[in-house]
Write a protein that binds this DNA or RNA. Structure first.
Lengths: 152, 152
DNA sequence: CTAGGTGCAAAAGGTTTGCGGTTAA
DNA sequence: TTAACCGCAAACCTTTTGCACCTAG
């Protein structure tokens, strides 16, 4: 009964699922864990190339898919933009900043269950819900506040 | 002060925004309003071809974009699938059915505001939130219930 | 040894764009 | 009359795939 999903390590998970340990796979995972800013596949590719110069974009995509299948990584889609990848396995939502375009994790300590929050039709069966926010990330919100203060 | 967003008609909106009335635009809009099942651009294309046989897919895309810019239609994205289009302007979420793949509108009569529902960090500014559900649509939920009953 | 993984290049799939001709206003 | 719009085809961008070679187990 492991309550913390991140407690299960990369090594454990990869072994358990019968995948191999490769330099590329590990480098892709490390790139995500190192800077948790929801990079696209191309951004991961650029970061990993520093460590594994021979890696190809296709391999980055393959590794990301494997990691996602393992449950070590989650895919974040926003509108029709490139997919982004997120190693945060705790329950959370994403805030898409309207100012800087960045993606911020919002821990979702829901105070209530879905059916308490909304009047859901009785004849649907909800297995899971996803929330995403638009607005200003902490940095941009602060900048905006400063701006407003100055103008007044 | 118009409380019901759908009260503002196609004609009104198109005029107001300075767009032209074209057969294609109207047919695309009618196709969405006629069967509100969140079709993809290609599905809209196929439906509209019955009425306007000369229409092209590019025009369907252009019309959908115009209608979206007008605020007459909303784009619904799910994972990396084709975009779907929805003329329901009332506040609602989407239920993506894990059984039939269909998309159902879920009226969202929220009982509370975002900050009451979740413990949001104090330093973010939320302008709007989107909720999507996975589960079984009414039809499939009913079928599943029947199945379960039978087995027991 | 061998199934799984990698790198490359080509294909796929969805959407957008450029352009010459057409049409609503 | 003319700017907006249409239809077509080509371009675009992200992601997937086929295949020959490589390597972890």
């Amino acid at each position: 009964m492991n309550r913390n999903p991140e407690a299960k390590s990369y090594d454990e998970t990869i072994s358990e699922k019968g995948f191999r340990f490769t330099e590329q796979r590990r480098a892709v995972y490390d790139a995500l864990m190192g800077k948790r800013d929801h990079p696209t596949a191309v951004e991961v590719f650029m970061r990993v190339k520093g460590k594994v110069p021979t890696i190809s974009l296709a391999t980055v995509y393959n590794c990301l898919e494997t990691l996602t299948d393992c449950g070590l990584v989650k895919t974040v889609n926003h509108d029709r933009e490139s997919a982004r990848y997120c190693p945060n396995l705790a329950e959370h939502a994403h805030l898409f900043c309207e100012s800087c375009g960045g993606v911020t994790d919002i821990p979702l300590r829901a105070k209530r269950r879905a059916h308490d929050i909304w009047d859901l039709p009785p004849d649907v069966s909800i297995s899971h819900h996803e929330i995403s926010f638009r607005g200003l990330c902490p940095k941009c919100a602060k900048a905006a506040a400063r701006q407003t203060t100055k103008c007044k």
